[in-house]
Design a protein around this nucleic acid. Structure first.
Lengths: 602, 602
DNA sequence: CTGGACACGTGATGC
DNA sequence: TGCATCACGTGTCCA
């Protein structure tokens, strides 16, 4: 808790607002260690993808109420991998949507007390995570709606691998689609209380290779496999940090803003100029800046908000450099002059600007190069998801997010492709072909990215080298594996035992008593103990063995989420054979305190 | 020696002809195990590349006297990787070349005795490696020249990794360029005696990722880095076997030979027809078939020979299916109608034909589908190495092999680029750019091929799927390796600990604080915790690991009298390496309660 | 200025 | 027939 003490009243209030589970979860986290996260990969389109899901109704006139990307990140201090707040986007339910749920807005509480509590809780969270009172979001809010509360509080959560909804989703690789949350008692996450408060009926978790996409709607949305695929592939392996060179070059571009670069074909001069001043201004929106947005929301009939992770953590002021969070001015320099890319550059700048807030200066960029760079083949493409003119013929997916073409008020008719040959002007059919090919390329590049993620020691950045490195890496692995297999042959019985024992248990891990399984093979006895993690009596078990004059030949401990799996290979001390019964006796003796369940096979 | 007994006289003769080193080397090999080799990847262009190096003088009017590709292969019986005969090509020295060396042809021995010995030796080698007397090459030769002797004998050599010249070259990845062999006493290989007999002055070994290219010349050729690069990249990662579908489709093509496929734009109908009859006929040559070649060599002023590996090992008759050796009717079906591809098809057929020799019949193809097929992305490009019109502007490399444009007597003027846009006719400089891009693509495709060669279970043919499969395969391997290493590390550590704890006895075990030793090996970290028995915080240690998102691959507990020895094999969750320091940090965090002593080794 | 790398639009081709 | 995949020539940027 980082030296911050909450009295019981505070705790009760926070627990009341967030729900007890969320409260416990946040409290049990080692907060200071989580303050500084390094994103594992980045995507300059991250926000636009998310906002597309929220703001742009698709052909079925549906859009999500919120979209969050839980970004695979690494704690700077501990090096742990966690899913942290990557970026997010939400909007208030439309009027039309308020009719949908069974028990929605009518039970909305907007009384003074709740509003005060919400603000205080947000402020406490803000402080808890290292921010100062002055830069708290809650300060600038007149009122905090249910949606906002859910959304803003979510920013302070992070999930280690396998932990809670997003963590399990990521670890398992399986998506989660819950479409009747308000009528069921399922908790998709420790934030369930908040999501219920926000009347979320449907919540979807989609794992990607660099994080988890979380979507929510107040409507009940049936599971849509196609959408899962589209979103999954759209958000997966986009990463990433880019080369310092590219950062520099994009910075150079930015610095050129007052000289109108020689080959600037578009009205790019305006954008870099507007960046420092319009920091926080979303380019897709009507124009409300990030910080203003909370104050001036509902300016339109389609209010929506965005909160980049860069703006989440005000404690950058405390000296923690979070430049690596969103190190994603991820522009292929070759494409820097294309409109949408310029927009991305602007967004990236915006995010980087966010990092050091008002006192940001351009010439600091050079110092913020991250230590480790990554390839992003896909990053350079930077095109809104499934960008096709709305007048195209009917498409297969009906829930996909479409994209706005009237981006930032700039005319889009004159938007040449960044590279390659110019379109053979005057065609009607190849437009589809071009788009298909584009997507194919993008997919391929994503694969390259993913490959890059699993291959260590990449020698060079180009694709050929990457492939080469992958090949050598694979052969290395194969060789290692082969060598090991030969070495391992004699011990395979042991490992077989281990694997069988591992495949069994997970059904009832919640048992608070250890399960003990004794199996004898020849003069060896294999003892398997399944035990809650917080209650594993190593000392006593070992002591028991010693007392019983039992030699422990081998002993292995594996761990599940919250259990210990302890395997002994034991042998009786003397020449005398250790019978299973004897050992069970031992365990029974030990079990006076443990009360184990003993089963015997073999 | 496979049951074949040689008397001393035989041995002496063989040693005399081959040189004692070569004799010893061959005798020390476990011959039967080497009989059956499976090439690791394959290239349908292999021979054309080699023959280009030998037959086609480049701009400097130079060509090598022989070129051999030592193919990375796997012994079918032992599974070991060896460099075996992949393919080769040689020619007699030109008249002009005979003046070059210091002591060449004048000391040539062509007396009856030597000829008889050479033939007998070749025949003995042939028999030794499983052939029968009838199908011996020596049988069809009127005389065996120095070059032929060297070349034919070489076919029976193979080199395990790191062994002899090629093996060392491959293992080290460093090339070898010896340009004054006849005047030095350097032995580049156990075959040095033979190479001297053939008057080879210069010998070059160039490692690739799937083998070693060996080049020789009777002239003294100074080292040429550019050439090394060109050849190295040209021969590297080309592979490969293809999938059943492709074979089938190419077979379909072949079977269509009498119906003249509907969209055959070129005179392709002729080629498949000519294949069965012209089997062994090299399409680039004047027309001498393989077996005839040895008899009718020197038909031109530029005699040259080729010996595909398929023709090396006559013991296919013995029932050993060597279909996997040259399983490369490696044609991208999409391009099967293009001329050069047809040529390749012919070559592939030719090689497959070679496998079963005279009794080959077309309808046997279907039965020869190997169990595992492979993709060849590069196969479709199939363009002669550095094919550019001779009237191009001056080129960088002067030793490169150029290509004959008058292939097989077919007119080349009407040879459109297979795909893509037509050239923007009327340029002068981009020609180079185009060629460069072509080579880049080719290289990339080669890499894809090589990748394909090392990844089993390819789901689909396209590149994206290949990448995806490769990724999953890599992660699989990593997982497997993890599991194995944990199993292995366990046993290792047991013995190690047993010895260490015994060797430096209980002097300081009485410490009431845990001792932590962290040792990193590659991306794994072994943590050893020595802790008093009654004070071992299993839960806390494991919890610390989990909090730190550190995957515990294995964890073992051994006990002394009153201590617990706890060993972890851990790995960081992501692809990033878990540094020792990071882990120590974790333990330092944990050590607030443990107060451990931390030592670091490795 | 030159070579390398990449993305792009395009024509071909097979399913 | 669309649809996906591919190779090609090209424009463009960077080292």
């Amino acid at each position: 808790m980082g030296g911050i003490v909450w009295n019981d009243e505070d705790k009760a209030m926070v627990a009341t607002v967030l729900g007890i589970k969320a409260f416990d979860y946040l409290m049990s986290r080692s907060v200071p260690a989580e303050c500084s996260l390094i994103a594992m990969g980045n995507d300059e389109n991250l926000h636009s993808k998310l906002s597309d899901l929220v703001e742009s109704p698709n052909t079925a006139n549906f859009s999500w109420n919120y979209a969050i990307f839980w970004q695979l990140s690494r704690s700077k201090s501990s090096g742990d991998l966690v899913l942290g707040w990557g970026d997010g986007c939400c909007r208030e339910p439309y009027e039309s949507e308020e009719w949908e749920g069974t028990r929605i807005r009518n039970m909305r509480l907007e009384d003074e007390t709740q509003q005060r509590m919400r603000k205080r809780v947000l402020q406490k969270l803000h402080t808890l995570f290292g921010g100062t009172d002055e830069d708290s979001y809650a300060f600038g809010l007149d009122k905090v709606t249910d949606t906002e509360m859910f959304f803003l509080a979510s920013m302070y959560f992070s999930f280690p691998r396998g932990e809670d909804g997003p963590g399990k989703c990521f670890a398992s690789g399986n998506h989660v689609w819950l479409s009747d949350l308000l009528n069921s008692y399922r908790d998709y996450c420790v934030r369930s209380f908040l999501s219920r408060s926000a009347h979320m009926q449907t919540i979807v978790l989609i794992p990607t290779d660099v994080g988890v996409v979380e979507l929510g709607s107040v409507r009940s949305i049936p599971e849509n496999l196609k959408l899962l695929q589209v979103i999954g592939s759209s958000f997966s392996s986009f990463s990433s940090l880019i080369r310092a060179k590219q950062i520099e070059s994009s910075m150079v571009l930015t610095d050129k803003r007052d000289e109108n670069g020689p080959n600037s074909k578009l009205v790019i001069g305006n954008w870099p100029e507007v960046i420092p001043e319009s920091f926080g201004q979303d380019l897709n929106s009507g124009g409300a800046g990030i910080r203003e947005k909370l104050a001036v929301r509902n300016v339109e009939d389609k209010p929506w908000y965005r909160y980049a992770n860069g703006s989440r953590l005000p404690f950058t002021k405390d000296g923690l450099h979070r430049a690596t969070w969103m190190q994603n001015s991820n522009v292929n320099p070759g494409n820097a002059l294309e409109l949408s890319t310029i927009q991305n550059t602007a967004k990236n700048l915006h995010q980087m600007v966010n990092e050091s807030r008002e006192e940001f200066r351009l010439n600091n960029f050079q110092n913020q190069k991250p230590g480790q760079m990554q390839i992003d083949f896909a990053g350079a493409t930077s095109r809104p998801l499934i960008s096709r003119p709305p007048n195209t013929e009917s498409e297969h997916s009906d829930v996909e997010a479409s994209c706005k073409d009237d981006r930032a008020g700039l005319s889009d008719e004159k938007r040449p492709r960044k590279r390659g040959r110019k379109p053979a002007n005057g065609r009607e059919e190849p437009l589809n072909h071009v788009e298909a090919e584009r997507q194919r390329r993008e997919k391929l590049n994503r694969q390259f990215c993913a490959l890059r993620a699993v291959v260590p020691n990449i020698s060079k950045m180009d694709k050929a080298s990457l492939l080469g490195d992958a090949i050598t890496y694979i052969t290395e692995l194969q060789k290692k594996l082969k060598d090991m297999e030969s070495d391992l042959g004699k011990h395979e019985s042991i490992s077989r035992e281990a694997s069988t024992s591992e495949s069994k248990p997970n059904s009832e891990l919640q048992d608070q008593v250890p399960r003990i399984n004794v199996q004898s093979i020849d003069d060896q006895v294999i003892v398997r103990v399944l035990c809650p993690l917080d209650n594993h009596p190593v000392s006593r078990v070992i002591q028991a063995f010693q007392d019983a004059q039992v030699t422990v030949l081998d002993s292995e401990i594996s761990t599940g989420t919250d259990v210990v799996f302890h395997t002994f290979v034991v042998k009786s001390q003397g020449s005398e054979k250790l019978t299973k019964e004897k050992l069970m006796q031992v365990f029974s003796r030990e079990s006076n305190s443990l009360e184990p369940t003993i089963s015997s096979t073999g």
